[in-house]
C-alpha cells in the first residue's frame, strides 16, 4: 500500500515510505539527525525540541525534519553550516537549563543529550551562557517511578504517552514560559496522580527525568 519514494540525504539515495517524515526516513536508513521530541507512534509531531533541522533544496531557511513529509526527489542536507549552527544554538540553549552532573544521573550513558553531544561533537556545557536551573525537589513519592523535573527537556513524549496512549492522564505540562514543567495537575506528587504505573513515561523519556527506581538509585 505504501509506495516508496526516492529521496537524497547528504548525497545518499534513500528509499522512504510515502507519508513518512523526513526525520523518520533518515533515522530508518542510518542517517543521524538529532531529535528529542519525536515519537514513532505519534501522528502529528510535537516539533518543540527544534533540533532536527535540515536544509532542503529550494527552501531558503532550514526546516525541522520531523514536520516535513518526504516527497519524491527531495534533496536534503543534514550537515550544512546553516543547519549546524542552528542546531548547535538550540542545543546550547537547552543545555543551560539541564544540570550536567551525568555521573549522578540515572540516565547516564542512556541519555539522548549525551548521544547528541557525542554524535554532533557539541559540548554539554555552554561556555558563554550562564545556567538557568530550576532547582525543583525530586519527586520520589511513587513506588516505582522517580521524577527529577530539573532534568526534563520539555520534549512532551511522556505527556503524549500518558494522555493519548495509556489514557492515564496523570501528567501534563504545567505553568508556562521558563517555569513550564511536566507535572501533576495542581502540582501534587506523582503518587497522588491518576498514574497506572504503565512505565511508558520511563520508557520514552530521552533523558531519564522519569526513571525506574532501583535499590541503588533510590529508597
Amino acid at each position: 500500500m505504501t509506495e516508496d519514494v526516492t529521496i537524497y540525504i547528504d548525497g545518499r539515495e534513500i528509499k522512504a515510505k510515502a507519508g513518512q517524515s523526513l526525520l523518520r526516513a533518515a533515522l530508518d536508513n542510518g542517517v543521524y539527525i538529532p531529535n528529542l521530541c519525536d515519537l514513532r507512534e505519534r501522528e502529528t509531531p510535537e516539533a518543540s525540541c527544534r533540533l532536527c533541522f535540515v536544509e532542503l533544496e529550494g527552501v531558503p531557511e532550514p526546516v525541522t525534519s520531523c514536520s516535513t513529509g518526504v516527497e519524491e526527489g527531495m534533496v536534503a542536507r543534514t550537515d550544512s553550516w546553516r543547519v549546524r549552527e542552528l542546531v548547535a544554538a538550540g542545543f546550547e540553549l537547552l543545555m543551560t537549563t539541564h544540570p550536567v552532573d551525568c555521573a549522578a544521573c540515572p540516565g547516564n550513558k542512556r541519555c539522548a543529550l549525551q548521544e547528541i553531544a557525542k554524535k554532533m561533537k557539541f559540548k554539554l556545557k555552554s561556555g558563554r551562557l550562564p545556567e538557568i536551573l530550576r532547582d525543583a525537589p525530586l519527586d520520589l513519592s511513587h513506588p516505582r517511578i522517580g521524577y527529577d523535573s530539573d532534568r526534563c527537556v520539555m520534549c512532551g513524549r511522556c505527556v503524549y504517552v500518558c494522555n493519548e496512549e495509556a489514557g492515564a492522564r496523570a501528567i501534563d505540562f504545567i505553568h508556562r514560559g521558563l517555569k513550564m514543567t511536566v507535572g501533576v495537575f495542581g502540582g501534587g506528587p506523582l503518587a497522588e496522580s491518576s498514574c497506572i504505573s504503565c512505565m511508558r513515561c520511563v520508557e520514552v523519556c530521552p533523558v531519564k527525568a522519569f526513571y525506574e527506581k532501583t535499590k541503588e538509585t533510590d529508597v
Partner: peptide, 18 residues
C-alpha cells in the same frame, strides 16, 4: 515576551531569557 512565552520550544523559552 519572556513572561508570555508558552514554554513549548527551546528557542523562545530559553533563548529569550538569555
Amino acid at each position: 515576551t519572556m513572561k508570555e512565552s508558552c514554554g513549548k520550544c527551546v528557542f523562545c523559552r530559553v533563548g529569550v531569557k538569555h
